[in-house]
Design a protein around this nucleic acid. Structure first.
Length: 300
DNA sequence: TACGTACCGACAGTAAGGCT
DNA sequence: AGCCTTACTGTCGGTACGTA
């Protein structure tokens, strides 16, 4: 069965599929349906094809594009850099959503609003924000966070080309926040005990954590706990509402219950919740539009 | 040289469940 | 009964390292 024709969302012209062998699309060039004029491709799925941009920069609003190239080129996990760039051009890209959302507050100079929305309670006003381990604000960070990050990474025996890469770090004088962002995928689960062994700290019940299977969150928790070095810390899991009610919800509860720390807290925030904050008069129309178009279709 | 592992995260088919 | 939608699962892509 050949693929259906599709209307280009950019110019409105109808695009017909090329008569070639169909394979899983992992780039614009793999797409059998392409609007060459707009440089927009459609994945080879029969239903709800993903849009794949020829130029990955086009997958984020124009006003937040500056600095993106630098961050992608310098992300913490070196091995994954190329792959990260490739995937950035997909309409389903988690990284593109992360970039657009957080960088919006930087370019519009609204970092205090970001803290409010993320429910980060701190009296400090000096903020540092890092995406994938690269600083996006301020232009010249005045802490040596990354230096300490490398030290911490080494202490967990991570290889230097494959370090833990927190999606977002927000560094305040009295609090260190890691945010693990999810969009369409769920939190990574692993049943391999050995994988957890490198990230055992005193801040959680080891066996319970392993049983919960939440390797990705456990690693982030251990990392932020150690890196915070005595100050308060938070691990935030930001995702669609359904992330917290999917097949892994019991395991997630187990994970949460296994955490024990005076200094640290784990919090879940949904994109839907975030949207209710954004969908108010003080935010730019284009930004609201962007977010609504990301969040609402994902629930239909 | 080839294979296994790790990493992150997306594609695409299918099973399941709801609706008419 | 059959259609449609959604959630889930398996598999893949691309990079590099360690080891046989």
């Amino acid at each position: 069965m050949s693929l259906s024709r599709i209307k280009c969302p950019s110019c409105g012209e109808v695009v017909s599929p090329k008569e070639e062998v169909k394979k899983r699309a992992s780039s614009y060039d793999d797409c059998l349906r392409r609007c060459e004029k707009c440089e927009v491709g459609f994945s080879n799925s029969n239903n709800k094809p993903t849009i794949i941009y020829k130029n990955y920069l086009h997958n984020v609003p124009e006003l937040v594009r500056e600095g993106l190239e630098f961050s992608l080129d310098n992300s913490m996990n070196e091995i994954n850099r190329k792959n990260k760039k490739n995937k950035f051009g997909f309409s389903t890209s988690e990284d593109a959503l992360t970039w657009s959302f957080f960088n919006y507050f930087v370019v519009t100079n609204q970092l205090q609003n970001l803290l409010k929305i993320m429910n980060i309670k701190s009296k400090e006003t000096d903020v540092e924000i890092y995406l994938w381990g690269t600083c996006i604000y301020p232009p010249k960070p005045n802490s040596n966070l990354i230096e300490n990050f490398i030290t911490t990474s080494n202490s967990f025996n991570e290889s230097e080309s494959m370090r833990t890469e927190p999606d977002v770090i927000i560094n305040l004088k009295d609090t260190l926040v890691f945010i693990e962002v999810k969009y369409l995928s769920s939190n990574e689960i692993s049943n391999k005990k050995e994988k957890f062994e490198n990230y055992i700290i005193n801040d959680f019940d080891k066996n319970e954590i392993i049983e919960s299977g939440h390797y990705e969150l456990a690693r982030n928790w251990a990392f932020v706990s150690k890196l915070s070095n005595g100050k308060n810390f938070e691990l935030v899991n930001l995702g669609l509402n359904k992330l917290f009610f999917d097949k892994n919800k019991n395991k997630l509860h187990k994970f949460e219950n296994a955490l024990k720390s005076d200094k640290g807290t784990f919090r879940k925030i949904s994109w839907e919740e975030v949207l209710t904050h954004i969908n108010t008069p003080e935010f730019d129309y284009w930004f609201k539009d962007y977010l609504i178009n990301k969040i609402q279709p994902a629930n239909r």
